[in-house]
Design a protein around this nucleic acid. Structure first.
Length: 445
DNA sequence: GCGATCAGAT
DNA sequence: CACATCTGATCGC
């Protein structure tokens, strides 16, 4: 098996230390209540949540690190068998509560694993994190960055979370006589909900397990588990669908749904691409091909939605991952010698180096051209879930809008409802054995 | 019956 | 098409 000195968000036997950047399911595949492969290092908040997600987890294996403090691990070198020291420091990733990026120094060099992150321009918290990271790197050179490349493609352009949150607040405020349901996951988007709660001076309903998380975060006053005292409810995104909305409107009361996230926010053509004109692309993206209710379709503005996907549903581009511009800023700050993506399942997947090589160390334009040609040659034999597309591609955009339409149809046909999902006392899952994502770049050495 | 894993849905 | 999550089938024990 591919063993490593230490592993980050990777739970294969054989490492001497394991790091968890945050507690989303796609980063804990392989972690379970019976974890016993080695010490697990994580942030304090993540450690608080682990027993909720993994009941019976052996807490003696948990090692909580402080954000912004260097620590040393004394390990055994896999190559020489001699003692070897690894230093690490965690930095706020601003992705979800407890999320961190990790900087390591050891015999393997200097390595930065971003985990999932969003560092927005103008965000004070991100600015502090940025400063902290720069201070930790100092004059050192980062040999490799393992990057949250979820939206590492110029087609992904969406506003910061502050703007998106205000859009959501405006939608709710403009529907004063409606109930509102907002789709969220088991962790993340708490700041959005608090912002809504405070702007509208209203408590937000969450399901009981979610309330524990809110309590842990100290948001006692913004949330409730009593449905009768509020018109705004946050529900599992998984249970959020058209049929639910139609059902609520039919048998309960006028209700709108808001999906903070949910769609690829394709807005503009990448620079210097001849394969498709900007006008053509824009037309494709704005065309209401996926809306079956033509009279209800509202075209996107330049900064993006609120977009109406359905009579009762608004989608708003609220993302906990950095957009392309933010990723560029990040790489410019670090200027690593090498860059690897940690997400390989995106249909828009492009090796981060394709767009960002110029921002890294020791790369000249001629090398960029060279690498483009090589990549094109390689694309045809690329494996399983990686779907590299060396240049921007009109076909890709066409497929996207078609599948959006297909997706809406699927939702309409769905026979599942929220009523089934929001059952009380649902077990905390031991393991989510799903997603065959194969993040190559999540181990050291 | 249970955990681990995968496929598929949402 | 995104992310993250959940259900259910299958396999090995």
């Amino acid at each position: 098996m591919d063993e490593a000195l230490i592993s980050v968000d990777r739970w294969v036997k054989g490492s001497q230390a394991y790091f968890l950047t945050h507690l989303h399911a796609d980063h804990t595949k392989g972690l379970s209540s019976m974890w016993s492969h080695g010490p697990l290092y994580c942030s304090s908040f993540t450690a608080d949540l682990i027993p909720l997600k993994f009941s019976d987890f052996d807490l003696s294996l948990l090692h909580v690190f402080e954000i912004g403090t260097w620590q040393t691990l004394n390990l055994i070198s896999r190559s020489s068998g001699a003692p070897t020291a690894v230093e690490f420091i965690a930095i706020d990733a601003c992705h979800c509560p407890g999320s961190v990026m990790l900087l390591f120094r050891g015999e393997f060099g200097c390595m930065l694993y971003t985990g999932d992150f969003r560092w927005e321009v103008g965000c004070e918290r991100a600015a502090k994190a940025k400063e902290m990271l720069a201070g930790a790197i100092k004059d050192d050179k980062v040999d490799v960055v393992y990057l949250d490349n979820t939206y590492c493609n110029p087609i992904y352009d969406f506003p910061n979370r502050q703007v998106a949150a205000q859009q959501i607040i405006d939608i709710i405020a403009s529907h004063p006589d409606h109930d509102v349901i907002i789709g969220i996951n088991t962790l993340g988007k708490e700041d959005l909900l608090v912002q809504i709660s405070e702007a509208l001076k209203i408590k937000i309903w969450v399901w009981p397990e979610r309330m524990w998380t809110m309590d842990l975060l100290g948001f006692y006053d913004n949330f409730t588990i009593n449905t009768s005292i509020t018109r705004v409810r946050a529900v599992p995104q998984y249970s959020f669908n058209v049929e639910t909305l139609e059902e609520l409107n039919r048998i309960k009361c006028p209700t709108i749904g808001i999906m903070p996230s949910g769609l690829p926010w394709v807005k503009k053509s990448p620079p210097k691409t001849k394969s498709i004109s900007r006008a053509h692309l824009t037309a494709r993206c704005k065309k209401a091909e996926w809306s079956e209710d033509d009279d209800e379709y509202e075209p996107m503005g330049d900064i993006g939605p609120p977009e109406k996907l359905h009579k009762y549903i608004f989608t708003v581009p609220y993302s906990d991952h950095s957009n392309f511009a933010e990723i560029m800023d990040f790489v410019k700050l670090i200027r690593p010698k090498n860059l690897k993506g940690i997400v390989s399942s995106s249909s828009c997947y492009i090796e981060p180096m394709y767009y960002l090589r110029l921002l890294c160390q020791g790369n000249r334009p001629s090398e960029v051209l060279n690498s483009k040609l090589k990549r094109k040659a390689r694309a045809t034999v690329a494996g399983s879930n990686k779907k590299p597309s060396g240049s921007y591609n009109a076909e890709l955009v066409r497929k996207r809008s078609m599948t959006l339409k297909a997706r809406l149809k699927r939702i309409r046909l769905s026979k599942h409802s929220i009523l089934r999902k929001v059952r009380k006392g649902a077990k905390i899952p031991d393991i989510s054995a799903d997603l065959k994502t194969d993040s190559d770049g999540n181990q050291v050495e």
